[in-house]
Design a protein around this nucleic acid. Structure first.
Length: 575
RNA sequence: CGGGGUGUGGCUCAGUUUGGCUAGAGUGCUUGGUUUGGGACCAAGAGGUCGCAGGUUCAAAUCCUGUCACCCCGACCA
């Protein structure tokens, strides 16, 4: 490929509305062009990267006995009514009507389509297990797309669905897939991808993992133990606490706490440690005026995902009205009368002499002791894990909170879809059984953006050779010089004959600075510079994009050296 | 959905407070020339219904009303 024929302009200035580097570089480098909020076209450079990623994924999916299929983008409402998700999914799903008025949806995930495809095929135990996957466009009408390709509304995804006759078989295959994913991220050069336990959310099912690329611009918060291998999405991370408190119980006393709007104010006023206080966090279920009051240690926050899962319904922070019977700012466990759901977080277990609200404007209690003053209560894990918190696995204070981008996930779905969609098989004994499913996704564009985010410098991306748009970039600094041009042309021809993907910049209209800047933006791992200066000494200069290798070799040796470097870079990713 | 910000040639932005004549700059693009190892220089040229609609006015990029789009924070999110 000649660079002067490459479609997509590169330019110098960082676009004003790009806040993350990968977005800015992909726009500046002529990779993508925004068309609408969270919707992008891909120029050839981006498409080449996406293709390479897809091929790596295909290889791994095929290696674990996956078979590639293709589901429709547009699906009828009826299919989604079978699973119940036509109703349960909100605005995120794009809905429309065809010319006859029949309602259709755009696929945002394909569990329904997968079951639909193999419902008849999988009617006997003899055909199990099997896995199908596809690579194609998904549409999700996200509330807030951001950061270029990191969070978009339309994107390409590899999604795989496996079917099993036993939980043991699913678990075994889940592990196989887990390993395949590790290989995929290694081969694509997505360094620093970790797997974490996650919340299954709307997908349902029990066990799930997310693959996270650690980066400060990530949207998810992760709890990572620095001592052991515990890693979880913060919304799924279990919080545990020390329950020893040797302080002897004091007398429960009502105390005036005027103008104390927050628990920090109260504790400051009473000169008490916030960790020895009990605050109330109030939510409402979506069936309006029902309140849910969570009592939790004053310095902690409620994990709304945990609360949502516990209640099994949607909740939102409460709007407390005057006639609700709830005294905002002074809510406490003693004498709370209103018929609301009251929950106690495990962080309160065993703590003595707490400060808490008195359910009376302007007053709090001190020396509140849960067992003594309230009797037996049940505690639930409803708090957010914190930096320096206790690791649920190794029990040390070693939890660190990091940010990450989710680039893949795997779920044990169980029979959630197969059951309601009436997929059955006949087992060895002639009994009808429901198959067990797993599903496994990877976002292609997001993976590319995440790699770019993790691997770039101020001038451009530094692509791993496995997904780079080209493997070699030839800069012919003076294509108007016959010797120079001849050398570069020959090299270009030879590399192409060897089957090496190569981009060749032989423009005479630009100066070296422009060529180098363009090369940096394309991020091709190996660069060969042919110039009059080098040619005079019969040399070519070879530089890797990451600057780890920079050498001059004779023109004759150039081909071999370049091929050696390419092979070495590839081996590093496979090792 | 709540809060904030921005819409002016392909891109980055000035001009808007205080209305005034043919709407500017840089960059990119075209042509010619000089240049050539990290985004050169000279000259000529093309390119804009100032997001859109309505209103006020002798006169609107500028003031008013509405609306749309994009960006950021939050809520939400396999």
């Amino acid at each position: 490929m000649k660079l002067n024929k490459l479609i997509g302009d590169r330019f110098k200035e960082r676009p004003a509305d790009c806040v993350v580097d990968s977005h800015a570089l992909m726009v500046r480098g002529g990779y993508i062009k925004g068309m609408a909020n969270g919707i992008y076209s891909q120029y050839p450079v981006m498409k080449r990267i996406a293709k390479k990623i897809e091929e790596i994924i295909r290889r791994e999916m095929d290696a674990i006995d996956g078979q590639e299929v293709l589901f429709p983008v547009v699906m009828p409402k009826e299919l989604w009514e079978e699973s119940g998700r036509f109703e349960s999914i909100g605005k995120e799903m794009f809905r429309g009507k065809d010319r006859n008025g029949a309602e259709v949806v755009l696929g945002m995930t394909h569990e329904e389509a997968a079951v639909h495809l193999v419902r008849e095929y999988g009617n006997t135990y003899a055909k199990y297990p099997f896995m199908i996957y596809q690579i194609q466009t998904k549409f999700r009408d996200e509330a807030r797309p951001r950061a270029g390709l990191i969070r978009v509304r339309e994107f390409t995804m590899k999604d795989a669905y496996s079917f099993h006759t036993s939980m043991e078989d699913l678990e075994a295959y889940y592990q196989v897939c887990f390993q395949a994913y590790n290989r995929i991220f290694k081969r694509t050069g997505a360094k620093g991808v970790i797997s974490v336990q996650s919340d299954s959310g709307m997908m349902g099912g029990s066990i799930s993992h997310e693959y996270m690329l650690l980066t400060p611009i990530g949207e998810d918060s992760l709890a990572v133990c620095s001592e052991c291998d515990y890693r979880a999405n913060m919304e799924a991370a279990n919080s545990i606490f020390e329950t020893e408190d040797t302080e002897s119980p004091g007398t429960l006393e009502k105390t005036a706490t005027p103008d104390c709007a927050t628990i920090e104010d109260v504790c400051g006023y009473l000169k008490k440690d916030v960790k020895k206080s009990c605050k109330a966090v109030v939510y409402q279920t979506n069936e309006e005026d029902h309140y849910v009051v969570v009592f939790i240690r004053g310095d902690l926050e409620c994990n709304e995902t945990k609360l949502r899962n516990f209640l099994g319904k949607e909740i939102h922070p409460a709007v407390i009205t005057d006639d609700s019977g709830i005294i905002a700012g002074y809510i406490g466990p003693v004498g709370i009368t209103k018929n609301c759901t009251v929950l106690f977080d495990t962080s309160l277990l065993g703590i003595r002499n707490l400060v808490c609200g008195a359910n009376e404007t302007g007053y709090h209690y001190v020396n509140f002791n849960m067992e003594r003053d309230l009797g037996d209560v049940r505690y639930y894990d409803l708090s957010k894990i914190t930096e320096g918190g206790i690791c649920p696995k190794c029990k040390k204070h070693t939890i660190e909170i990091s940010r990450g981008i989710e680039i893949g996930n795997i779920f044990q779905l169980g029979t959630k879809y197969t059951d309601v969609m009436n997929m059955r098989y006949t087992d060895e004994n002639g009994d009808l059984k429901t198959p067990i499913m797993g599903c496994y996704g990877i976002g292609i564009g997001r993976l590319a953006a995440a790699v770019c985010e993790a691997s770039h410098d101020e001038y451009g991306p530094v692509w791993p050779i496995s997904i780079a748009p080209w493997e070699v970039h030839i800069c012919c600094l003076r294509a108007d010089d016959e010797t120079v041009k001849k050398t570069a042309d020959d090299l270009y021809d030879h590399l192409q004959k060897e089957g090496v993907p190569v981009i060749y910049d032989d423009r005479t209209s630009v100066r070296p600075g422009v060529m180098f800047s363009d090369a940096d933006l394309l991020g091709v791992p190996v660069r060969v510079i042919v110039s009059p200066k080098n040619s005079k000494e019969n040399l070519c200069e070879i530089v890797t994009r990451d600057k780890k290798i920079s050498k001059k070799v004779t023109v004759e040796e150039t081909m071999k050296t370049v091929l050696d470097i390419i092979n070495r870079l590839k081996e590093e990713l496979e090792a």
